[in-house]
Amino acid sequence: MNAKLSLQHVQKTFTDGDRTLTVLKDVSFDIFPGEFVAIVGPSGSGKSTMLSIAGALLSPTSGKLLLDGKNIADASEKERQLIRLHQIGFIFQSSHLLPYLTVKDQLMLMTRLSKESKKDAEQRAERLLTELGLRHRLHQYPERLSGGERQRVAIARAWMNEPDLILADEPTASLDTERGQHVIEQLAHQVKQQKRAAIMVTHDERMLTYCDRIITLEDGAVS
């Protein structure tokens, strides 16, 4: 089976004045379809940088980054934007929903950005939100939603364009344990059901039980 995402000897350095900072030294791992992988590690270990590279937000300094078998390490800004739009779903620490869009419109926005047909999208949006238990919230603005509900909307938004890869950066940071577990349970369920790949950066060890595999980053390298 081919890996959905494959990092091969990825290195990332930043220049800070005269100093060169190596955040990722040599990171290699594969994520397969249907796999839900957790990335753990102390702060400063390079988790967020790794996630940004996997999410086509940053280009690696060297190494290969294969998404669905295609190397995107040297993709242009425009190409990376299209990859983010069509192949990657992001879930952030806080939900980062647009305050002026209703729950359903948050999802429809993704469709509009990718210029898909509206009719199929409406059905998919309603189905996703129903699965995540948000059917009754379709036409409400984020300010009326609880933290857990908002994060579930963010998950639905990440799924909306049927991406190959879901990237979640501490998605439970702003939730209490019970809500956090509920949200991750649903995320894990979706990954299995639709044979997608997902990476979650987390500090919360209670969430690890839902993951298939744990990758530990330390000082910019997989340990």
Binding site: K78, L82, H86, I88, F90, M110, L113, N161
Partner: peptide, 16 residues
Amino acid sequence: LNQFGIMKAIGSPVSV
């Protein structure tokens, strides 16, 4: 700005 950043992260082109 934060909203615009998020929009870019989830794949919105600058033109939009």
